[in-house]
Nucleic acid binder design. Structure first.
Length: 655
DNA sequence: CTTAGGG
DNA sequence: CCCTAAG
């Protein structure tokens, strides 16, 4: 009696990191340095950019066009050797914790099946998916050493026309932390094919949890009413096509994604025992060895609602604009709707929890208790990319990729946090650290920090920290693809969320604060927040700006990301300077950029300097987003005025 | 911490 | 944007 489980890891029904906190005072950078180093002290979530990084390094590519699919595939087949990024990963104590190793791929792959798999980025609707899937047989989770690749290939072959499995579509369970009920609240799991319980019931349960219709298909991609039990254990592949809901409003550019369907943690997830999952995996692995496990697909219809917000003052960031515009444009064009879907899908994918089942652990049972950890979410530092609107999607992807790689720069490493504090001694065992099966999940956390060493040198050391270095990954070619997309999507979504709140008119003297959220992102990261915990109205996967040390850490030695001033910001700056003069940048900051955490008064001062310069040079010599002549003239005016009239006692005028 | 400027 | 001397 093989008990299969369907783990809906991809549907953020979990609790996410703590919600964003209030902002701190708005004083220069000093604060950044003082920021707390708490990453996700909350649910012990594994906020891990490493995840992304890992995916970047090893994941499959997302294809823009079906035609590129094969090319990418081949490319990946020959050049992609997951082992390159083999996990230098920790072996905290006796627990070996590989994250991106090919060795355990067999185990990993098997986990793929029971995980929510959102096939590709191009899936637009069920029909399409079905059609695509009907062309060939369902991809089957492979076995053996190359299972991952096999799966990937097969999935690609199967879902080729609809893209390839994307980021975060797999579940990984990191056997690092002890959790009595690791899955609880985090993964929707359904007992399938268990004893008298029919799969149909399981599906029904899933449907109930997802609050949406679920179509179960067999290998022939034909819908089957009931999920049949298989002796070798069933593997269900869950796809959740995202539907777009057309919105008439053409004016609004910003969009807000609202995927209610993703909020599933409301419902009480069926209790699941880790062991059960492991068993499932292991059993599946064992049995699937000789007989390829059936891969079935369950499609869960989901609606992604796009609600546009009102005005969108010239956006704060170029990418923001570009992205939104792209989205908008594509949105308007029926034929391009897919692009939107792509972005959405990516976002969706990125939100997918990443867990991993570590079957090897089973045998480690030498007296000590098993410690299992499941990664539910990860944090991705903010990325900014500038692109002209004329840039192609590919350009965008590459740019994002570059940004991501740049971010990863010197490498990142994972730091274990126990009760909010870094665990310095990496040789200590979990037991010694008090990480036992009874440890409260929330007491354990992780954070990313820049690798102290320039590159991967630390990898050689026994440094149990996971070190990710882009040195190990050939840049764009194949990893770039979908990961960049995912990141881009993340950013895009974040942007939209910002805009949603940015209803203030920068020109307004009093309320010329630029969108809080958008600027707050400076603090560093956005957390893919599976679900804020409650309310169905809450976007299941809100991106939560998080202020954390990590961002600081990542900033170490690195030049700050370039964030061109938007016209709106320039406007705000000019307005403020007109009023305060050119010698009180602190006040200007407070007055017009109080919420823009990433704009220091020095930045404003510098910007003013460049503005003055810009205003003086010939228009054709200017670069970047063109600043309205009107503004430039005001710059000249204000500049000359204030240089003449020493900053009198204008102090009263402000306040 | 702020300013003011050069790099 | 960064770096820094100065105040």
């Amino acid at each position: 009696m093989v008990a299969s489980k369907v783990l809906f890891g991809g549907f953020p029904g979990y609790d996410g990191p703590a919600p964003p906190r209030a902002m701190r005072s708005s004083r220069g950078r000093g604060e950044a340095a003082r920021r707390q180093s708490v990453v996700v002290p909350h649910k012990g979530r594994f906020e891990l950019l490493a995840t992304v990084a890992g995916r970047i390094l090893q994941d499959t590519g997302v294809n823009e066009g079906q035609d590129k699919l094969k090319a990418n595939e081949q490319e990946s087949l020959k050049e992609n050797s997951p082992s390159e990024i083999d996990s230098q990963v920790s072996s905290v104590g006796s627990v070996t914790n590989h994250i991106f190793t090919d060795k355990r791929q067999s185990a990993t792959v098997l986990c793929v099946a029971p995980t929510v798999v959102v096939p590709g980025q191009l899936v637009m609707n069920e029909e399409e998916l079905q059609v695509a899937g009907a062309k060939k047989n369902e991809g089957v989770v492979g076995q053996g050493e190359n299972s991952f690749e096999n799966f990937r290939s097969e999935a690609a072959a199967t879902l080729g026309s609809v893209g390839i499995i994307g980021l975060g579509n797999m579940e990984f369970e990191l056997p690092l932390m002890t959790q009595e009920k690791p899955m609880e609240k985090n993964v929707i799991s359904v007992e399938c094919c268990k004893e008298n319980r029919g799969c149909s019931e399981a599906i029904g349960e899933v449907m109930a949890m997802l609050d949406g219709p679920v179509t179960v298909m067999n290998e022939a991609s034909s819908s089957i009413p009931e999920f049949q039990s298989s002796e070798s254990g069933d593997f269900m592949k869950l796809a959740s096509p995202i539907y777009l809901q057309e919105d008439k409003d053409e004016e609004n550019v910003s969009m807000e994604m609202e995927d209610k369907g993703i909020v599933v943690n409301e419902k009480t997830p069926p209790s699941v025992a880790t062991s059960g999952c492991s068993k499932f995996v292991s059993s599946g692995l064992a049995e699937g060895h000789n007989s390829r496990p059936m891969l079935k697909r369950v499609m869960c219809k989901r609606d992604v609602k796009f609600s546009r917000t009102k005005k969108m003052n010239s956006s704060q960031h170029l990418l923001q604009e570009t992205m939104t515009k792209k989205l908008k444009n594509s949105y308007s064009k029926a034929s391009d709707a897919q692009k939107v879907a792509k972005a959405v899908k990516c976002t969706h994918l990125s939100k997918t929890s990443i867990k991993r089942h570590h079957t090897d652990m089973e045998s480690t049972d030498s007296g000590s208790s098993q410690v299992t950890l499941s990664i539910k979410s990860f944090t991705v530092p903010e990325l900014f990319v500038d692109l002209p609107e004329s840039a192609s999607i590919l350009n965008l992807k590459r740019a994002v990729m570059e940004a991501a790689m740049n971010l990863l720069g010197g490498g990142l490493r994972v730091r274990v946090l126990l009760q909010g504090k870094k665990v310095p001694d990496e040789g200590v065992t979990l037991l010694q650290m008090g990480i036992s099966p009874n440890t409260k999940p929330e007491s354990l956390g992780f954070m990313l920090e820049p690798s102290p060493l320039p590159t991967s040198s630390s990898a050689t050391a026994e440094d149990p920290l996971l070190v990710l270095s882009h040195a190990a990954s050939p840049p764009l070619p194949r990893y770039a693809n979908h990961c960049s997309w995912a990141l881009a999507a993340i950013h895009a979504q974040m942007d939209t969320s910002c805009q949603a709140k940015n209803e203030l008119d920068p020109t307004s003297t009093v309320t010329s604060n630029i969108s809080q959220e958008s600027f707050e992102g400076e603090s560093g990261a956005i957390v893919l927040h599976p679900s804020m915990g409650t309310g169905d109205n809450l976007p299941g996967l809100a991106l939560v700006p998080v202020r954390q040390k990590m961002s600081c850490a990542l900033e170490v030695g690195k030049r700050r990301m370039r964030r061109p001033f938007s016209v709106a910001e320039v406007e705000a700056l000019v307005h403020a300077v007109e009023k305060l003069g050119t010698g009180r940048w602190r006040d200007v900051k407070l007055r017009a950029f109080d919420q823009a955490k990433h704009r220091t008064y020095v930045d404003l001062k510098d910007k003013w300097k460049t503005l003055v310069h810009t205003a003086r040079i010939a228009p054709h010599q200017r670069r970047g987003e063109p600043v309205p002549q009107e503004l430039l003239e005001r710059v000249i005016q204000a500049h000359s005025y204030w240089t003449a009239h020493a900053a009198k006692q204008q102090a009263e005028l402000d306040s």
